Simulated assay, not measured.
Amino acid sequence: MQPHSYTSHFDSYCPVLSTDIRRFRISFEGPAYWPFFVREVDGNYSWMVNRVRSRLGLLLKGRLCAENGYQDFRDRDCRSCPHAESCMYPRAFMPVFENRGKILNISPAFVFRLGREGQPQQGWQGYHLDVNIFGNAEDLVEELVPELCNVISDLSFPAVDSEWWAQNQIDHILPFAAAEPKSILPSGDCSQLDYSSVSTLEACAAAMPGEIQLDASYDIEVRFETPFQVMGEGRNMLRSLSFYELLSRSVTRFRNIQRWYANAEMGRFAPEFWETAKKIESRHCLSRMAASRHSLRQGENIDLTGMIGPARYYSVPGCYLPILYAGSLVHIGSKTSHGLGSFSVQCLK
């Protein structure tokens, strides 16, 4: 692929980034140095973001079932419920897609990401929970986002590893204090709440990298903040991601979201676009992180094990960066709505 062709490649694939996205941030305070990786009662470890998702589902299902006159919501099978078609819970957490007469279970139209804000002050730390909601999902916004404030304020953690908590001066029962949610505009401004505010993956990606030249090349670091689960040949989980794999899995994710939630164009990718991606060199410092979380709805443990850490890619053409920046907003791999596959992208000096 010659340098002069970079811009034309961007023009051909950018339709796949036209999906609508609504972004919100909930800031909250809690004990300093709170670990996002927590131990459960059964001895297994899980991610705090998955605990947020599980608690959100429990509270939302309880409220919606109560509105329909049900009290035994923990044991109620949503698919056989007479209110299933109009209820928000299966729409949010159990979405399906009809393809050629077959009903497929698909990934929910949202992802979560946790982060820290500023430096600890007198034992307290600022945090934030970002939620990104994709495609034609306007009705999800006003249900999910306000409920997340209640979830954060109501989070509880098992009293395990008490010696570890004490050594790190963390009170595992100390409540979090959540502020009102704010909209994240493409400019990054979070000063107000506007449920109707909508952008696109392309606009958000364009605002993230700053002054990126499509015709230039960059060394980049991709840091997986939560484990990714990406399956290779033979259904074996990949222990590393070549640049080609990272790029292709991001494009697959975009196209699935387009197909399920937007019904929009898929973009075109020339063969040399992929051939160049295969030649990009990389260096990985990834490690395997074992985790699981018990699902009350499914009655079984959810495997959250995957690879986590940084990977570096060298001499990456600038035309690939919008895909990676957009990919960081939707996550990649399996169990993205559980918080897996979250990553950040940084251009190195």
Results as ranks from 00 to 15, higher is better:
137 A>F: 08
128 H>R: 12
88 M>N: 14
83 H>Y: 13
70 Y>H: 04
63 R>Y: 00
63 R>M: 02
80 S>I: 06
53 R>V: 05
118 G>K: 09
127 Y>S: 03
97 F>M: 14
62 G>Q: 09
114 L>S: 04
96 V>D: 08
145 V>W: 02
54 S>A: 15
152 I>H: 01
48 M>S: 08
81 C>I: 05
145 V>S: 02
94 M>R: 15
63 R>C: 01
111 V>W: 12
98 E>H: 14
77 D>H: 01
84 A>L: 09
72 D>A: 09
156 S>G: 07
140 L>Y: 09
91 R>Q: 10
153 S>C: 05
155 L>E: 07
74 R>V: 07
146 P>E: 09
146 P>Q: 06
80 S>C: 06
97 F>E: 14
131 V>I: 15
140 L>D: 03
116 R>D: 03
136 N>D: 13
144 L>H: 05
132 N>E: 05
49 V>D: 00
140 L>K: 06
76 R>D: 02
96 V>S: 12
149 C>A: 14
72 D>N: 15
89 Y>Q: 11
99 N>V: 04
113 R>H: 15
70 Y>M: 04
60 L>F: 11
127 Y>F: 13
68 N>G: 00
126 G>M: 10
113 R>Q: 14
94 M>G: 09
63 R>A: 08
86 S>C: 03
120 P>A: 09
144 L>V: 11
73 F>A: 00
150 N>D: 12
83 H>A: 08
73 F>P: 00
140 L>A: 05
56 L>Q: 03
137 A>R: 10
74 R>Q: 10
49 V>S: 06
81 C>P: 03
100 R>G: 06
133 I>M: 05
105 N>S: 13
67 E>F: 12
125 Q>M: 14
155 L>N: 08
150 N>K: 11
123 G>Y: 05
119 Q>P: 00
81 C>R: 05
111 V>P: 01
85 E>F: 12
83 H>M: 08
141 V>Q: 07
85 E>L: 14
44 N>E: 12
97 F>W: 15
148 L>H: 04
154 D>W: 03
100 R>P: 00
96 V>L: 08
131 V>L: 07
143 E>G: 01
74 R>Y: 02
44 N>P: 00
148 L>W: 04
119 Q>D: 11
46 S>V: 07
66 A>V: 04
114 L>Y: 07
156 S>V: 06
53 R>G: 04
59 L>V: 01
130 D>Q: 10
156 S>T: 12
110 F>S: 04
89 Y>D: 07
115 G>W: 02
53 R>L: 04
81 C>D: 03
119 Q>E: 14
61 K>E: 03
147 E>A: 15
95 P>A: 13
112 F>N: 08
65 C>Q: 02
66 A>T: 04
71 Q>T: 15
122 Q>L: 15
57 G>F: 00
116 R>K: 14
152 I>W: 01
101 G>C: 07
64 L>Q: 10
47 W>M: 13
80 S>A: 10
85 E>Q: 13
155 L>I: 11
53 R>A: 03
152 I>A: 01
148 L>G: 03
127 Y>D: 01
58 L>R: 14
57 G>E: 02
135 G>D: 05
145 V>D: 00
